[in-house]
Design a binder for these strands. Structure first.
Lengths: 315, 315
DNA sequence: TTGTAGGCGTTATCAG
DNA sequence: CTGATAACGCCTACAA
């Protein structure tokens, strides 16, 4: 393993000078800097993270904690994880993945996802810098990053109204999670703003349940109805139930939420509210690193995007 | 941060004795060992990974490299990743995720996934212990772990035959990847063994293409046909095309492959060949660690499982 | 069985 | 602007 000493020898300077060229280049004279840089290339030097970590009392490790059962949580994670890993790697950090909350470890920061309200107490007791994925109640004062769920369903509702669907209903989830509430509110507010009568239904977040719901209520669903769904999974069931009569998008318009994977495999392809995972990952990471370096606590909401596809009329 | 010295002071012994109690307990007298263990608990000592890594010239970091475009590769990864992370964490290793092949890094081992034939040359030039996810040509001598793809489609084919479907066809993929070939072979061999005439089609790995294929050939598809699909994604399209006439599983039987997520959201639910991800993760990790510790190179094939659900007749 | 010295590769600090 | 020294926390090698 080639180290600082090797470079120093090659460049006929001390180890410290080499170290400075790397970490504080402007404290070194131009000539020496060039000399050292050449030497670095010549011997193929790469800094040793471990040694650096030891002396700096930092691990350069960020832990991504998944508190919910992955198997049920579908594809979202893979993509978010990869994005975060990439951003972190670029900044010299390592992403460690964990499924348990074990604060004793040597990590510099935590990104916590899939938490429930009941985890919040425990979370706020841990004194490692952290950022939550998902909007948390403000009284815990825990920094979070989330997509603006309310804006998302608002976008969806507006789109359906503008596309000319006379009636617009909402199919939400039975889970008691903040984002579930936010998504419903986005629909309700937008309907109110347009002086329209709102109507909501709740199902578990499974396509088959949504499918059944539609079959049950189809008799009462007038043609020219728009359906805002709390998730793509629900939308999938709705589309399937409606597909038989191939009435999409003429008689029924369907909008999903999430924009990961499922939206692509439905037929017709889903109009959906897309979570901007790349941006989410970037924000999550920079939020956390800002805490590490400047100790700012921030709550951030990212804007989602409406992706128009074939399950709604083109306006 | 509490360290060896703190424990030593507390127990009135030297740092080395404490270190020995942790790493070579049988080199220490019983009394001293108990004393030290108490002290460790008392002060809440946790070994510092970083320092250990520095002196041992190990990072305890395993890199998981994803060489293909994640967005297109669907949910499989999230679950595999989490499983691997868990296993590794238990053994004191950290999982680092990366999307680029950059061998210069300070990692102890590599788990490589999503590679193509063209990556193999480069891969075998890297002299860091590694294990591939996916069966590789033997002449590269690269250790790999994979599900037994051939056995998988064989299981699927046998199931359809035993369920009494008269004709059994195969819908494969156009990609020139080893596992694609293996899956097709599993079908062909099994058909031959039963003295049945085989018939294969190829589509890209998208549900919509599979759907179109079925629509095109449905006229030539006699009732009582079984369809072995190379992936759940393809099966999804097939099921959708056949659903209209709701002829599943009476007139047509469909079996998918992978058993992650998609199989759950089809209607009817898919009979499929399930990749045992937990076991895959365990094998991947132990294969790699065996290389690190005992430098054994191994190629391992894991048996998949047939999960019978509603897209085939019950036997 | 236990302890001492030295070093892993890096950087902060202080002296020149 | 540059260099020597000590330290981060741990472990191997050797000594007692």
């Amino acid at each position: 393993m080639v180290n600082l000493a090797d470079v120093a020898r090659q460049a006929h300077v001390s180890k410290m000078t080499v170290s400075r060229v790397i970490n504080h280049p402007n404290q070194v004279s131009d000539e020496v800097r060039d000399l050292v840089n050449q030497a670095i290339k010549a011997v193929g030097y790469q800094p040793n993270r471990i040694a650096k970590a030891l002396v700096n009392q930092q691990n350069y490790v960020i832990q991504f904690i998944v508190l919910e059962d992955i198997a049920t949580v579908e594809p979202n994670y893979a993509i978010l994880l990869l994005e975060i890993a990439e951003v972190l790697n670029q900044k010299g950090y390592t992403l460690e993945i964990s499924t348990i909350l074990e604060p004793n470890s040597h990590v510099d920061g935590l990104i916590v996802s899939g938490w429930r309200d009941s985890d919040l107490e425990r979370l706020s007791a841990i004194n490692v810098p952290m950022v939550l994925y998902g909007q948390a109640p403000t009284w815990y004062d825990l920094p979070y990053v989330d997509v603006n769920n309310r804006m998302g369903t608002s976008l969806a509702t507006t789109h359906l109204i503008e596309a000319g669907y006379k009636k617009v209903i909402y199919i939400g989830m039975t889970m008691a999670l903040p984002f579930v509430w936010e998504r419903e509110q986005g629909y309700l507010e937008t309907m109110a703003k347009h002086h329209l009568v709102s109507r909501t239904y709740d199902v578990s977040n499974h396509s088959h349940d949504a499918e059944k719901l539609i079959q049950n209520i189809i008799a009462h669903l007038p043609k020219n109805t728009g359906i805002v769904c709390a998730t793509d999974r629900i939308a999938l069931g709705v589309v399937r139930a409606l597909k038989a009569q191939s009435q999409i998008p003429e008689n029924y318009g369907v909008v999903g939420f999430d924009g990961v994977f499922i939206d692509q495999i439905t037929s017709p392809k889903l109009t959906t509210i897309k979570q901007p995972f790349r941006q989410l990952a970037n924000t999550l990471v920079s939020n956390l690193l800002n805490q590490l370096h400047h100790s700012e606590l921030k709550m951030e909401l990212i804007q989602p995007r409406l992706v128009k596809r074939d399950s709604t009329r083109q306006v």
